[in-house]
């Protein structure tokens, strides 16, 4: 699905990603963990196409295509979805209109006709139910005045509507209460169909109880320093990052 090779990226001349290698196959769930500031969100933004970040080295293949050459909108149209760590508030743009535009621009890109309003409405209703998103939020401006948890749920709702093949969830669990966490996890698990892939960024084992990863990677100072199975997350939960930090410092010393 996606192959990341030796990816380096910097912002304002400061290198943040320092050689990332990662391969995610269809149907897999990968978790990325790592201390604050290690570059997890930067990796998501670079993959989603944020222009602020400059890729200085490396390559990313997404379903065989050169991802880094595409503008952000084409990456989304090709099936990449990023659930933002901090969803953006857009006053004056209604949630439904925004989603309708997104759905139809993606369809146009794929050579499909615009969705009939009736079908679109049915789709929205269905997915709202899935993430138990209050229907009233649909008519409000995108994320404007949403609570932290509502914003996160709105991200999962958008994901469900857009139906991507690769979804990157950047700390979608932070700020969620236990019930919301289950709903979000349930949303992800319902979308899982053996063909989609997920890249789940989180600080907590808790989410991974609900969304069980096939692989866990630890990102530290812009590099994946350790990979393993789901037991790695449990180990981290128990011991923290100290050991990894020490080991890494020894190696780079």
């Amino acid at each position: 699905m996606i192959t990341i090779k030796n990816l380096h990226a910097s912002v304002d001349g400061k290198e943040i990603l320092r050689g990332i290698n990662l391969e995610v196959k269809a149907g897999e769930i990968h978790a990325i963990m790592g201390p604050n500031g290690s570059g997890k969100s930067t990796l998501s933004s670079v993959l989603a196409g944020k222009e602020e970040y400059e890729v200085t080295e490396g390559e990313v293949l997404f379903n065989g295509k050169n991802l880094l050459e595409m503008p952000a909108e084409d990456r989304a149209r090709e099936g990449l979805f990023l659930a933002f760590q901090y969803p953006v508030e857009i006053p004056g743009v209604s949630n439904v209109n925004f989603l309708k535009t997104a759905v139809n621009e993606i369809r146009t890109y794929k050579g499909l006709e615009a969705m009939a309003p009736k079908d679109f409405l049915a789709l929205v209703k269905d997915k709202q139910k899935l993430v138990e998103l209050d229907g009233k939020l649909a008519n409000r401006s995108v994320n404007e005045g949403f609570s932290g948890g509502e914003k996160k749920r709105n991200e999962i709702f958008q994901m469900a509507v857009l139906d991507p093949c690769l979804a990157i969830l950047d700390e979608t669990d932070s700020g969620l209460d236990i019930d919301a966490l289950k709903i979000v996890a349930n949303g992800v698990n319902t979308l899982k169909d053996g063909k989609k892939a997920f890249l789940v960024i989180t600080h907590y084992q808790r989410l991974l109880d609900y969304i069980v990863p096939d692989f866990v990677h630890i990102l530290y100072q812009g590099k994946i320093v350790k990979s393993g199975g789901k037991e790695l997350a449990m180990e981290l939960e128990a011991k923290g990052y100290d050991e990894i930090k020490k080991q890494f410092e020894k190696e780079s010393a």
Binding site: R77, L99, T101, A102
Partner: peptide, 29 residues
């Protein structure tokens, strides 16, 4: 707003229509 622009792009909305959406919402008030 660059952040808003990126958010719209990241949902598959092209630069031109994202720009229009943002300006139209600015004007709507």
């Amino acid at each position: 707003d660059e952040e808003a622009m990126f958010y719209l792009n990241a949902r598959g909305i092209g630069k031109e229509s994202a720009r229009k959406m943002l300006l139209a919402s600015f004007a709507r008030e």
